[in-house]
Design a protein around this nucleic acid. Structure first.
Length: 116
RNA sequence: GCGGAGGGCCGGAUGACCGCGUGGCAAGGCAGUAAUGCAAUGCCGCGAGGAAAGUCCGGACUCCAUGAGGCGACGGUGCCGGGUAACGCCCGGCGGGGGCAACCCCAGGGAAAGCGCCACAGAGAACAGACCGCCCCGGUCUGCCGGGGUAAGGGUGAAACGGUGGGGUAAGAGCCCACCGGGGGGCUGGCAACAGCGCCCGCAUGGCAAGCCCCACCGGGAGCAAUGCCGAAUAGGGACCGCGCGCGAAGCAAUUCGCAGGGCCGCCUUGCCCCAGCAGGUCCGGGUAGGCAGCUAGAUCCGGUCGGCAACGGCCGGGCCAGAGGAAUGGUCAUCCGCCUUGAAGCAAUUCAGGGUGACAGAAUCCGGCUUACAGGCCCUCCGCGCAG
RNA sequence: CGGGGCGUAGCGCAGCCUGGUAGCGCGACGGUUUUGGGUACCGUAGGUCGGAAGUUCGAAUCUUCUCGCCCCGA
């Protein structure tokens, strides 16, 4: 086993993967919205990020996406399951202004709820 | 000190831990037909802006089109001179307007080339015209009526066919005179826009060209998803080989003859030519997904010096300054800085402690401009008023 | 990157080119008809014309800048 480095999982790039994840399970938190889909294979964990124009201008969208990417890097692999795709959707206002530690807690609770 | 005008600059700072993109060097691993990619180690370096924004102009660079010239159409620009690769940008002048001033603003060519419009009000809105007035003549029932003169006054309007004053007259009128305004041609200064001076003309023709238009000048089209290279899978195209050849007849067979079908730009006639089916193999060309190049050294930045009022240009020295691609430049913390707020001390300036907050905003081929957004702060020059000297 | 369109009363739209009065339908409100409601009829109110400058005597209309929304092509 490799040392437990905090490492980024594979990032989704195809539009079809996002649409499939949006149609499957979803779990809302006060910081963001989590969408997830169990693929039929046992491949690696994949993750994607969505920040629409509702969040604000380009600076706001970038900041929201970076915060979501950071909490995914720090805590996703500990609670994720192989073969799943996860999509984190930013929320207007909350994703940027919410305290970072609370945002990390949101991810762990959302992951435990979405798996049951 | 108070108030104001113009110009330039900064756009939080430092550090720690974790993380991202990219370049170079070192040593290799894996995947793929290939181009190339993927994961990962060590060291060194770099990593958003003044607007990166809006996409309003101008270019560079690629591809397409194009023999040259002229004319027309369409679009744009619009005082003069200069700067620039170019511009609708910038600088310096000129003219007009505003402000006590510093200074600011102006799409600022042509209205005797032509067409069109000028609502309502008003008598009349553009080859003038008489509603009320004023004056003269005639009539009269003494209320006024008719004819003529007049553009000074009233009234309307955004605008009424020069303005003010005097003379003159029945009342008036550039009818005459002075000044102002206007037009024409002349001289002087200036590269020019234009300005100044004196002469002539009593004055003849309002506004709108961001209405059509006229004049002068400029403009081929598309855009880095341009374009070039490498190129799977699937379908389709072409060449060759192989098997095979619509129906009937003859023949052991190769083959020969007859009769049909389809195509060759709408129809008919004639002539010529071509095509037929597949389940296969080899090769070729184009090319999608994908990948790479284009992709960052340039009308470049900084300093000095020279020319120029300036925009800017020449020369010398130094520097290398993001290159992503579902798109890196981030997260957390501490201290300092600025701002807001609460509490305490103090007459006050202020000090201490706690909390909150950090403007507008994110490169996407690259430059030169314009426009718009912006917390807070710094510097320089100038003007008016007040005070002191 | 390039091109095009829209913004007018609560809603959907005319008016703009060719500048002077902002109008239509639905809806709202009030009244009549009805025992009541609906329907029908009559009447009424309601608009900074997305925003800001400019041209003009005068701007929803013309010009420039700006904000928001939508669509198309490579």
């Amino acid at each position: 086993m490799r040392a437990p480095r905090m490492k980024m999982p594979v990032v989704l790039t195809q539009r079809a993967d996002f649409l499939a994840a949006a149609k499957a399970r979803r779990q809302g938190t006060s910081g963001f919205l989590l969408q997830a889909r169990h693929r039929s294979d046992d491949g690696p964990v994949r993750v994607g990020f969505t920040c629409s124009k509702k969040i604000g201008n380009a600076v706001m969208r970038n900041r929201a996406k970076r915060r979501l990417r950071e909490i995914a890097r720090l805590g996703l692999l500990e609670h994720a399951r192989p073969g799943w795709d996860y999509v984190l959707v930013g929320r207007p206002g909350a994703t940027i202004s919410r305290d970072f530690a609370d945002l990390q807690q949101d991810l762990t609770t959302a992951l435990s709820r979405i798996h049951k």
